[in-house]
Write a protein that binds this DNA or RNA. Structure first.
Length: 287
DNA sequence: ATCCAGGATCTCC
DNA sequence: GGAGATCATGGA
């Protein structure tokens, strides 16, 4: 057991800020430039980046460090990955060059599922606020005024009415079904991680309020299914605009092209494209 | 102010 | 089975 107060880890092809702020997660707070407080599930850490060094504060054990290394996907060769994707076409190269330090996080399943259920027909700033409300209402205080994301058990007393009072709107009934399925053993994590992606997707789709887009986000961001290509309005726009020279292309055609071009790396490609499109307003009127 | 959001479901035909 | 309406709410 290592007991340093601060642990420094070398990284490459990584930007803490871009990885947190590219829209894949919602529980982070900027402390100062290049320094963030980050929560995932029932854990929290403070991290600072200085060039190719990450400093983990209060990471008092190897176990803690391992959790966050996995969370940030620090040990993958993103240099090689980006090289492969960039060679595909100029658009992908440009999207990658725009934010070359984006990694795909490995998030807590229940948190990821509820967060992306909340994401539908919603803005990212408001998603963050709604997630925070759930944490403050049902979660455990972790310190520094921040709460853990509640477990399904912690949310078992929730009602649709209460969730509506908390501002979850029409998503309240969806959250209720997710809690109910989780607490009744219908979403056993140990079994889910073993499933083929297609089977796991169908399992997620059985939850009321989880459609293809939300299911794919869960598959990519919490189950590490990097071949999945979550296609929201932004990704749909940027793909339609650049690859089809049309305003809108059927989803199936986008999935097919993504599979052909990016294959098992489609999930990474998606995140570079999403971040690039959203920050630059690609495909929007006037963009 | 009023438009719209990292969609999904329901309701028609 | 595909297009269109509906959903709650607040950030921009």
């Amino acid at each position: 057991m290592v007991m340093e107060k601060e642990i420094i880890v070398g990284v490459s092809d990584f930007s803490l800020a871009d990885t947190l702020e590219c829209g894949q997660c919602f529980r982070y707070w900027k402390v100062e430039e290049q320094e963030y407080l980050i929560a995932s599930g029932q854990k929290m850490i403070r991290v600072r980046q200085k060039e190719n060094e990450l400093t983990f504060y209060d990471a008092s054990s190897e176990k803690v460090l391992n959790y966050w290394s996995n969370f940030f996907d620090i040990n993958r060769d993103y240099g090689k990955l980006k090289q492969t994707l960039s060679a595909e076409d100029a658009i992908m190269a440009e999207a990658i060059a725009f934010a070359p330090g984006v990694h795909i996080l490995k998030q807590d399943f229940f948190e990821c599922m509820i967060s992306f259920i909340l994401s539908q027909n919603n803005h990212i700033p408001r998603i963050k606020k709604m997630v925070e409300t759930l944490c403050q209402t049902y979660g455990t205080l972790l310190g520094e005024g921040r709460y853990g994301f509640p477990t399904a058990e912690q949310m078992q007393g929730a009602t649709e009415e209460k969730l509506r009072e908390l501002g979850m709107g029409f998503r309240a009934k969806y959250i209720m079904d997710a809690i109910k399925k989780a607490n009744s053993g219908q979403l056993p994590l140990a079994d889910l991680v073993q499933m083929e992606t297609e089977e796991l997707r169908n399992k997620l789709l059985s939850i009321y309020g989880v459609g293809r887009k939300v299911a794919d986000c869960i598959l990519l961001f919490s189950f590490g299914r990097h071949e999945v290509f979550p296609t929201d309005v932004w990704v749909k726009r940027v793909m339609s605009y650049y690859y089809f020279q049309k305003e809108e292309v059927p989803l199936q055609e986008i999935f097919q092209l993504a599979q052909e071009k990016y294959g098992d790396n489609a999930g990474f490609a998606q995140q570079y494209l999403f971040h690039y499109a959203r920050k630059n307003g690609i495909g929007k009127k006037g963009g």
